[in-house]
Design a protein around this nucleic acid. Structure first.
Lengths: 251, 251
DNA sequence: ACTCACTTCGTACGGTGTACCGTATCGGAC
DNA sequence: GTCCGATACGGTACACCGTACGAAGTGAGT
């Protein structure tokens, strides 16, 4: 009789999948739409980029696009779905490596593309926390990464793990690198201001006796270049060196 | 004259640091407090654990503790600060490794403790996105990890990178592993229901022709054990193998 | 006994996502 | 050309959020 309206059942799931994979047919029979789905997604991304993902709201997206808030719901079932579309759009920008390159160069290309994607779309960092959306561009990129890792000749289980490691590593590095700047953009507080606001800690509670290792690394300049390009590529190299060794041992 | 009330300046920063590091003196001169700061933090963690971090609200925490919503603000400046206290509390549960063990065993111990922490507190996954709080328990654990990695004898910059890699890797693995279950707990939709709701995708848009690599890995059972303990320990091993080789080459 | 710092919490404000529904707009059928 | 009905638009409303404000009650110090 009265079915629950918030169910995630097959109905909503199917609607989302269609939205991602099928171009929505331009509806005949009614007044013409003022916008396109693409414009809505782009507008949302612009709002998220300019004001930060925390400030993203349906009302703000609508205002940015010059329509009423509720009008968005004719393009998109809800905010969550809009977010999935935004994610897939971001992944659409990822280029694929030249298939004639050796596997390692291809994987490194993928990693650099992922890094660039997170740099260009910091709001992504706050997303993939949920499930990765089953969007076409997401899957195409992942498929190609799996293809590249398969070139190693390693067993399937290992390939799945390695591909996951590469994606997770880049994501983790991007998260750390982007966090500071995005927080700054959101609150208008610069990184220096933040540290200054917390400096009472350094003078009061931080003592070299309690934190000798950190103090030592600090004095050696070990924290100076934290999360530059060099830092995350160092991790990638470490990772791929291990994979390469496994692959060599395999054959 | 009218100073901005939302400033993050030294005032608020100092208050937060004191809240984290100094036990709040039991206030004389007024009616006795009904709760303690510890109880507030514990209550918030219970709400986050039971209902999911998205459902965490000051009103719900207050109700859970049997007090009015606004009463919480006598213990804590705001929600953000409460969250930092929750994070530090979670880190407080991390045990430290036996210092007589070799460095690798110590680092692995740290990694396993981190994994256990994320398993026990899935709401953490949605947190560290901002800056890591400067809480005493967070810093004590990190200090000890740096100490353990320093035992390798590697240069300071490398030590900083390796420690970051280990933490980031465990976090990434935990994020992927925990996501499914936490979404289930939040929405009451099981993982199977979710996949069923999206199954129109598998029948309609997923074709082996478009995704040959994924299909191949799937057929080989490569995705079966995704994000079990074995999966993330595989990544850790790969990582530490590389570190070990660097350390050996060093001396 | 008085003072007054302090806790508690009801009320309220501006924000959110979005359900509901009246109104305007058009394509297709006649 | 006229009308029907599906559709887009968007105002209003509801439940919820974080939290500012202030009134009322409490209890130690004087």
């Amino acid at each position: 009789m009265d079915e629950p309206d918030t169910e995630w059942g097959t109905a909503e799931g199917r609607a989302m999948i269609r939205l991602l994979w099928d171009p929505p047919p331009p509806p005949a029979r009614g007044p013409r739409q003022r916008l396109t789905l693409d414009q809505v997604v782009s507008g949302a991304i612009e709002v998220a980029s300019q004001q930060g993902v925390d400030e993203l709201s349906m009302r703000k997206v609508a205002q940015h696009l010059g329509v009423g808030a509720m009008s968005l719901y004719t393009y998109v079932p809800g905010k969550e779905e809009l977010f999935e579309l935004m994610i897939d759009r971001a992944w659409a920008g990822r280029a694929l490596p030249d298939r004639t390159l050796p596997w390692r160069a291809q994987v490194e290309f993928h990693a650099r593309e992922a890094w660039a994607m997170y740099q260009a779309n910091p709001w992504l960092i706050r997303s993939n926390l949920w499930r990765m959306p089953l969007g076409p561009h997401v899957l195409d990129a992942q498929e190609d990464l799996y293809r590249a890792v398969l070139l190693t000749g390693l067993p399937a289980t290992t390939v799945a793990r390695v591909a996951g490691l590469v994606e997770a590593h880049v994501f983790g590095a991007a998260r750390s690198a982007v966090t500071d700047t995005s927080v700054s953009a959101r609150t208008g507080v610069t990184q220096d201001d933040y540290w200054e606001s917390r400096q009472s800690f350094w003078g009061t509670y931080y003592t070299p006796e309690r934190f000798p290792a950190m103090t030592h690394i600090w004095e050696q300049g070990g924290f100076d270049e934290e999360y530059s390009d060099a830092a995350w590529e160092f991790g990638l190299r470490l990772l791929l060196d291990g994979v390469e060794r496994m692959a060599d041992g395999e054959r």
